[in-house]
Amino acid sequence: METHRTILVANQQGVHGRVATMLAKIAVAYDGEVLLQYKNEIVSCCSILDVLSLGLTQGSEIKVTAHGEKAEETLDKISQILTSATDPQPDN
């Protein structure tokens, strides 16, 4: 199954090292595929470098798409990270 969501980046610092790390970790652990679209660029969320290079700052509007099993659940996790104004603590 495929599902998508439009999300406004809320992190005050934008999608920086720690946030990108958490996003990529989720995408890598996911069996399906997660894509981020910002303006005209679409990248795989598995690539931390691609995610960083979008240069997402607070207020950027992005479209997140997930293909595969448990797509909704994965989108929930990702949007939770992107919509919290402060850094969530990583779960180690």
Binding site: G17, R18, A20, T21, A24, K25, V28, S44, C46, S47, I48, L49, D50, Q89, P90, N92
Partner: peptide, 23 residues
Amino acid sequence: TDDLADALSIIDSHVLILKDRMI
């Protein structure tokens, strides 16, 4: 140790960069 979350996150991001498709 786990209380050094910042340091751990730095290393985790380095692991992801290392395995990134762009590399």
